[in-house]
Design a protein around this nucleic acid. Sequence first.
DNA 1: GAGACTACTTCCCTTTGGGAAAGTGATACC
DNA 2: GGTATCACTTTCCCAAAGGGAAGTAGTCTC
Lengths: 125, 125
Amino acid sequence: METKSVDGQISVDCWERLRAINDTKDILSGKWKAMIIACLASFEKKRYMELHRLLAGIGTKMLSKELQELEINGLITRTVMDTKPITVDYELTSYGRSLKPIIDEMALWGMHHRGKIIGEITKKK
Amino acid sequence: METKSVDGQISVDCWERLRAINDTKDILSGKWKAMIIACLASFEKKRYMELHRLLAGIGTKMLSKELQELEINGLITRTVMDTKPITVDYELTSYGRSLKPIIDEMALWGMHHRGKIIGEITKKK
DNA sequence: GAGACTACTTCCCTTTGGGAAAGTGATACC
DNA sequence: GGTATCACTTTCCCAAAGGGAAGTAGTCTC
């Protein structure tokens, strides 16, 4: 086949794209990471307990775990404040902020999707 | 507090955003859905076996399951062709194509991320 | 009629993810 | 000194996710 090299090229490009998508999914893995990033993108800075209240339903274990993983990946910073009872501030790094386009697209699509589903239900009635 | 209503508004907006992000994550749940959509976005139309080869590592069980879920959500169409041995074409719907911005952002970020990580490794040496 | 190709499904098993609840330790309030 | 707050950690448990292998069914080839 004369298309062999072309197909090869397409496969490599495709494969790299798929790998990249996978990498991003890994970074945003877990039930809460995308939402934590969304919160920190909206509020700039949040304490542990504030996040716990904002993310209704999350347990302390999960919150700690997800925050640690985000910190390890360089997406957020953790700073211990020396307040009366100590508090901890979490903030997006500039690298973490680079995920904002993805989060925004996800929020946008999710809103449209919900609108579409509700539209379909009311149309049926 | 005079900020009560303002905080309330912020919470509601935030909560709706978080819910939307969650909805989108659900639609793209599973190890392979985002990649399947990426493939179909690149190639327009692919057969079951072609997808199986393209998505190196996926088993037939997972591929079937993920494709079914995508079809149920109205993101892809399944058309049986009456070829010698029957073949089945999968294609993105226009609704499925509306996920392209998310997939593209994910691919883009993943590429940059890999570049950054490799850069950090070579800098250390 | 044996084997191959297509597109699956079914069964079984292991791994992972994630939640609830309780515990920890430091500090502060009353 | 009892209780509260903040920020966790630890333990235990269960459901869901995902993989491998084999089976099914229809058609075509040799």
